[in-house]
Amino acid sequence: MINKKTRGPNGRTRKLRKSPKRSRIGKGTRSFKRPLKAAGIDWGEKAFRAGLLAASTAGTLLEEGSKASETDPQKKVNECWTRWYRSVKRLPWPFYHVAAAKFVAGYRKHTSGYTPNWVLVPSDKTIAAIVTVMNEKDTIASVIEQLHRLPLHEMIFIVNGSTDESFEIIRNQSRATVVHYHHPLGHDVGRAVGAKLAESEILMFLDGDFPVFAEHLVPFIDAVEQGMDIALNNISPYLGLFSRRDYVTTVKEFVNRSMSRPDLGANSLTAIPHAMKKQAAQQIGYANLAVPPKAQVIAIDMGLKVGSAASVDVITRNRLRTRNVGQRNNVSELIIGDHIEALKTALERKGSRLSYPDHIRQRKLTLH
């Protein structure tokens, strides 16, 4: 778009142009309006044509024993997408989301249907979203809206101790399993309950206090699809200088370093969103998931593949409550206590010095 005219040093008129504005799908995800080209390939057009072809041959593309239900077009389209995406090179996430949207548009054009706002995932494994809820009437509808955009096999809401309309909103707006406890379960216990109830191969954990864009959840699912047992939220970009970090962040990083995983920084199962294999949850023990850092220590000690999948800002967007405000609040002290419990578990499993060597001290001389 031409903005204005101005005169250069030689007196000639020249035109200044504005770069086209780019719309955003949430923080950190960019929607490209220009042709989606990489290495000379227009991936948007390529994906659109692949969607058309998939729709015309959908009956033969789905193998016998397919997990996609004939009555669930979203899962059917996702399975076709996964099959096609595995046949091409992996794309950067901004490219991926635009290509996936084009694939849906091509598929729905062939079937003469409207183009839904679906978000496709590069996996044909069954996926469960496990959401803990306590007095989230202002946000839970938005959480549900984003989850409906994904080809989920299960949505499990653990509503505990709520005194507002959260339960009614979930029951009326979703096709979900809702477990309702009239009394509070305690911090993170709902995750353990949901993991045990889930039947899916991939478990994705969320809280009901703020929605996460569906696009931002895909990398966590993909990390597990690619072989990671536990895919953590990489909160490191949001922490700032070490000298300004609080006690909670410091103890998270210390636990990871104690387990010889300094690469994880302060990333922890304490922070959502994260995902894991159902099999990993079984190996760790469902009850241990109620104390997230303890579960993480056990997973690392067992040799499970634990890594960071993507970064979702849950720090600046965290809902402020009376129990989590102030430097020494109830929630921060509970989390620090959880990490002390995790360190106790680490000491029991790895020895009194954890991963720290004792090369120069000759202890045997003190025994005489």
Rank of each mutant, 00 (worst) to 15 (best):
K4T: 11
R7L: 12
R7I: 14
G11N: 10
R12T: 06
S19Y: 05
R22A: 13
I25L: 10
K33G: 12
K37F: 07
G40W: 06
W43I: 02
G44Y: 14
G44I: 14
G59E: 14
L61E: 12
K67M: 11
D72T: 10
Q74V: 11
K75H: 09
K76E: 03
N78S: 07
E79L: 08
R83W: 05
Y85E: 06
R86A: 10
R90P: 13
V98M: 10
A100I: 02
V104Y: 13
Y114P: 00
Y114F: 03
W118H: 07
L120F: 08
T126K: 09
T126I: 07
I127M: 12
A129L: 05
N135G: 06
T139N: 10
A141F: 05
V143A: 05
I144A: 06
Q146I: 07
H148L: 07
H148K: 15
P151W: 09
L152A: 15
M155T: 07
I156C: 08
F157Y: 15
V159F: 14
G161E: 09
S162N: 12
S162T: 12
S162I: 07
D164M: 04
I170D: 11
S174C: 11
L185F: 11
H187C: 06
G190F: 10
K196D: 06
E199F: 08
E201C: 09
H216P: 00
H216I: 00
V218F: 09
V218A: 14
D222I: 00
M228H: 03
L232P: 01
L232N: 04
L239H: 01
L241E: 15
D246N: 14
Y247R: 13
T250N: 09
F254A: 15
F254L: 15
N256A: 14
R257Y: 00
S260L: 03
S260N: 10
S260W: 02
R261L: 03
L264F: 01
L264Y: 01
S268R: 04
L269D: 00
I272C: 06
P273V: 05
H274F: 15
M276Q: 09
I284H: 00
N288Q: 08
P293Q: 07
K294D: 00
A295N: 02
V297G: 01
I298P: 00
I298L: 10
A299H: 00
A299N: 01
A299R: 00
G307I: 01
S308D: 04
S308K: 04
V314W: 05
I315Q: 15
R317N: 15
L320C: 03
T322N: 13
N330K: 15
N330Q: 09
N330G: 12
V331R: 10
V331Q: 09
I336M: 05
H339T: 05
H339V: 02
H339M: 12
L343M: 15
E348V: 00
S352R: 06
D358E: 07
D358G: 02
D358K: 07
H359I: 02
L365K: 14
T366I: 11
